[in-house]
Design a protein around this nucleic acid. Sequence first.
RNA 1: GUGGCCUUGGUGUAGCGGCAACACAGCAGAUUGUGGUUCUGUUAUCAGGGGUUCGAUUCCCCUAGGCCACCCCA
Length: 416
Amino acid sequence: MKYSIPRGTKDILPDEAPLWQSIEEACRKVFELYNYKEIRTPIFEKTELFTRSIGTTTDIVKKEMYEFKDRKGRSLTLRPEETAPVVRACLENNLISPDQMTKLYYIGPMFRYERPQAGRQRQFHQAGVEAFGASDPLIDAEIILMNVQLFNKIGLKDLEVNINSVGCKKCRPEFRKELKAYFKNNIKNMCKDCQERFEFNPLRILDCKEAKCQKYIEEAPASVDTLCRDCKLNFEEVIKMLDYQKANFKVSKRLVRGLDYYTRVTFEIVSKQLGAQNAVSGGGRYDTLVQELGGKSIPAVGFAIGMERVIELLKSEIRNPKSEQGILLFIATLGEEAKKLGFDLLSKAREKGIAADMDYLGKSLKAQMKMADRIGAKKVYIIGEDELKKGCGILKDMKTGEQKEVSFDSLGEELK
RNA sequence: GUGGCCUUGGUGUAGCGGCAACACAGCAGAUUGUGGUUCUGUUAUCAGGGGUUCGAUUCCCCUAGGCCACCCCA
């Protein structure tokens, strides 16, 4: 094969496209139910937007960005996530302010240079929301509940909702300090990755999967225990609201996010049916990001779902969409003259909104019938020499097999 | 970025150091203008490159891609 698809990318072929469409539609429906409006931003942004927002010590920025220079030497990057671009667009177009609520959603491709694996590609798709303006814990609860409602609607099973609070500007450094103090003595017995994490991002040690690190992690201090007063109240309130709404969730002390901008409540929904890449959605609050990107102090929450992972789950479930819509009319012709007339009738049918097709390969009538059957045509209109003389073609119902003469002029009427 | 397993027609599989097998799909035909059943025919330089050998799809090496775990994250 001379040309092959770039590593970590995938073609979505016609047999899978309807599934994508139905999920995208479900996302739009649910998001709009909660009054979120769609926003579309460019696929690439200035690199700096991401290094600023995501954090220079995170893996995404350090080694996963598709960065390139344009012809004038400006550094651009294919978006690895959508929160920063949305914030940028909001600031640039004056969509948000501290005394007003703005709810936005997006659906589209993201890019991260990672080693491909099932459920992890270099170009992948996310659908997500961002809510700006409110620090009320109700809105934290709302997006989590909305996310759950969305997954229920789509029909995902065996999900687990995990939530945690990572604190704010005030108490997170405190927590960091405590963690470092705690791990200090044992860090040399832990894995190499943890030793590195100890230096630049001790929070990440908490979700290490290495067996030998587990015993130290289990005893480690939890962020929820070192939260400042406000963060603690906020977290308790979110939990209260979720309980009140009878949501099914778990407080997971070791849940941490890989992006620096998160504050306070973070959550993640994982599937028990997936392997290592089991997070189907994730998000949380980011109260300082807007200001860090040059805006006023505006609190915000958001989350994104991983479309490929949702698709993967749906594929493993019993499903048979088998699109019922198909071509309504197939025009079968014999001879050049009939073909031209057929083409004319075909155009007329389409103008009337009737999905229609014909053969362009000069196949036999038998082959044309076969094709009509395969593409799921409900009716076939046959035009041969006899029909040309009479001015009527034969309209055949493919289900019953019945056929009758219908004049060329009344074909459109007949199909209504 | 690290480690392990894998790569045979459009798809799913078999095979073995010596003429690549099967199923499904596709295309053509089964007396001259009619589909979904049946029957017949037809469809592969065995991922790419190199090496060992009289001979490699089969053994070895490299590359690419896939899968699994680490890592990371949605």
